[in-house]
Structure formats: structure tokens, C-alpha cells
Design a protein around this nucleic acid. Structure first.
Lengths: 205, 205
DNA sequence: CAAATATACTAAACAGTGTTTAGTTTCCAA
DNA sequence: TTGGAAACTAAACACTGTTTAGTATATTTG
């Protein structure tokens, strides 16, 4: 009797439905304007139903986050194609920036907002973004091995690169870059791209 | 008749009282746990009274932010003392990191959280952090002039440095660094300090 | 000085939030 | 067919930021 299997499948489908509309609503309206009631309305269930599938809002956000990290990893896979490791590093950086400008609300949820990290404290281990970050670490490791960059600690070099990119993105997403530099919002992505290129030139062996 | 002056003074005193306890509560309990009602309770007025002195919560947060930026600037003034411009740049960076580790909740409010920036859109110009950022830009400009660093665009070099430091701090404050590197939370400030030092060595002429 | 007015303040309400409880309906197994 | 589990929800709870209407208090005016 495949009833328990079907029930499990239905449960999984319902979760899918919930995170799907949650993701869409986040992308369209931004984190702050999406409430459990809004989501419940959209999927035509009562708010309480969502709590049958998610312990709390943070747990739901955690799943939304995971979804977003998948998108980022997909973007990496598509845009990081060069045969030269250092060039791949460049492509990875640009793909990261691109993702941020195209999905600012998702970026918020993945890296800036506090909320979903509360759920993670309870998790065994935070797997979110692991694939993407590993891609960076592996790439940097390769560059270190082949002496393409000046640093020699891959872990620290990778973290530094991430911090540099993330710093720019998060300042930009909060409107700080324009206030600081006087560039317009449209110009900034290009300015940041140049700054990241400059950084890569600095670390180039 | 100094009555209007007294009234104005009293109005200013009340505002002081409000932002003072607001700052204290932010530092102690964090942004998310401080409500208008909490603040009102602490100063022993009704919540509605706060709205006689602040248009909305964002406007109050803006004042709290300004307060926090003053503290940062003070930290700069105290810790940036060397006669050598490049060394001063180093001191500035370390002072920035120090401030973040000592006042994580204030840092959140100043640079990470969305909230007070809503108020700023309405302001003529965002003066928050202007002094501190100008200190950085001036310092970087001096370094560029004296050819102490390899970059030649002071605006971009300053922004890059800020982005680098802010990237580390904001990743760290969201627990991302530990998850990524495996270092403990206590070790991270030191690791980040090393990374920043490495960056400064990279840009050193 | 008394009346009129402006100011300071608040109780109560409004509309929203995340979440829980208690109760109903639906479905499956014995 | 009936007993019990599972799915679902209406309503409530305890919050949030904010507004409204009304009450005291202080100041100005006749």
C-alpha cells in the first residue's frame, strides 16, 4: 500500500508550493512585505496550515534561502567556463555581482538579513551556499597551487575575495556607495566591476 | 520672554532622553527587540508621546544612527595617531574593525539594516558617517599623492577599502565566516585583522 | 484675574504581524 | 460501518507601528 508514500509526496508537494510562492513574493515585493498571511492567501490556505509544514517563519525562510543558493550555483555553472583558472576566478566574481544586481531581494535573504540564520542554529550544519562557496575555495586553491595569485592560504584568500565582493554588494544594496562616491545608481555596478577587477589584478601573481 | 526658548530646550531634552535610552536598548538587546512601546516604558511616557517628537520609528533610528556615527568618529580620532599616512590607514582599518566587534548592534544599525535609510530618502542629504568616511577618503588621497599605495583613484581606493572591511564585518556578524572557514567565533576577529593587513600589504606601493 | 487658546500628554483603537489552540472536516484502517 | 488519525481552519493571543480623540496643563489674550 503506497498510501504513506503518497502522503509523503503530497506533503513534499505542499512544501514546494509554499516555498515557490514565497520565493516569487520575495523577489517581487521584498522580504519585509511578505507575511505568512500573504503567502497563505496566495496558495489559498489558512495561515495556520503553513505551520503544519514549517515550524516557524525562519524555517520557511531557510528553505527559500536554499532555493536561492541553488540559483546562484546554477549561475556559476553557466558563467564560469574558461579553461584558465584565474579567468574562471574572474568569471565567478562577475557572476556573483550579476546575481546580486538581478536578484537583490534574494541576495538580502541569503547574506544580509538575520532572520533565516536563527533557524540554522538549530540545524545540524548549515549547508546553504556550501556548493557555491566550495566552488570558490576550489578555484582559489587551484590558483594558489599553480601560483597564479600572490596569496598562499587558500581559505583566507577565498574568504577575502568573498568579503570584498560582498562588501561592495551589501553597501550598494543599502545605497551607501552612491552616497559615498557621488556616482548614480546605474553607474555603480560598473564601478564595482572595475574595483573587483582591480582587486584581482592586485592579487595576480 | 524666553518661554519659546525654554520650550525648545525642553523639546530637545526630550529628544535626547528618547535617543539615549534607544541607543542603550539597541546596544543591550539588539535592533529587533526594541519597540516603541519598550522605549516609551523605559522613559515612563506613553508610546504616543514619542510620536510628538519623532515622525516615525525610522526618524528615531536615524538619530540613533547619527549618535553611533559620532562614536565611530571618536574612535577614529583616538586610535588614528601615527605620523605616517600609510600607518594611519592601518590604524583606521583596525579601529573600524574594533568598533564593529565592540558595538555589533550599532554596526548593524549603521550599515546593515534597511530601516533608517527610509528616513534618509526624505532627508536633503545623508550626513551620517560623512565625517568618518571623509577621514578615510582624505587619508587615502594623501597616500595616493605621496605614492604610498598602488592605486591612483582615491575615491575608488577608499570605497574598495571600506567594502573590504565591511564585507568581513557583515559576514562575521551573520556568522558566515565561521561556517565558511571553520575557525571559532573568538578566532575570527584576529583572522580578519590578518586578512585586512594582507590587503593593505597588497595595495602598498 | 478670567476666559480662550495653544501645548503636552495619553487611553484606546486600528491594522497589521507571527503563532497557538481548539474544533471541525476529511480520509484511511480495522 | 465505525473509530481514530490526519488535514485543515476560525478565532484568539500577544505582539508590532501608528493614529485619533479627548483630557489635563500651561500660556496668551481680553
Amino acid at each position: 500500500m503506497g498510501i504513506v508514500e503518497r502522503k509523503e509526496r503530497e506533503k513534499a508537494e505542499m512544501r514546494r508550493k509554499i516555498v515557490d510562492v514565497a520565493v516569487r513574493m520575495f523577489v517581487e515585493q521584498g522580504y519585509e512585505k511578505v507575511s505568512i498571511r500573504n503567502i497563505a492567501d496566495k496558495i489559498e490556505y489558512s495561515p495556520a496550515t503553513i505551520y503544519l509544514y514549517y515550524k516557524d517563519k525562519d524555517q520557511l525562510l531557510y528553505d527559500v534561502q536554499t532555493e536561492a543558493f541553488d540559483s546562484l550555483y546554477k549561475a556559476f555553472a553557466e558563467q564560469v567556463t574558461s579553461s584558465d583558472p584565474f579567468e574562471r576566478l574572474e568569471q565567478l566574481a562577475y557572476a556573483y555581482l550579476d546575481f546580486a544586481w538581478k536578484n537583490p531581494e534574494l541576495y538580502d535573504l541569503m547574506f544580509i538579513i538575520k532572520a533565516p540564520m536563527n533557524a540554522i542554529a538549530e540545524e545540524e550544519k548549515w549547508k546553504g551556499g556550501d556548493d557555491s562557496y566550495n566552488a570558490l575555495v576550489n578555484l582559489v586553491s587551484e590558483c594558489v597551487e599553480k601560483k597564479l595569485i600572490r596569496q598562499n592560504d587558500p581559505a583566507l584568500a577565498a574568504l577575502s575575495m568573498w568579503a570584498f565582493a560582498h562588501g561592495f554588494v551589501s553597501l550598494q544594496l543599502r545605497g551607501r556607495c552612491q552616497k559615498a562616491t557621488g556616482y548614480t545608481e546605474e553607474e555603480m555596478p560598473d564601478v564595482i566591476r572595475r574595483a573587483v577587477k582591480e582587486y584581482l589584478q592586485l592579487i595576480k601573481a
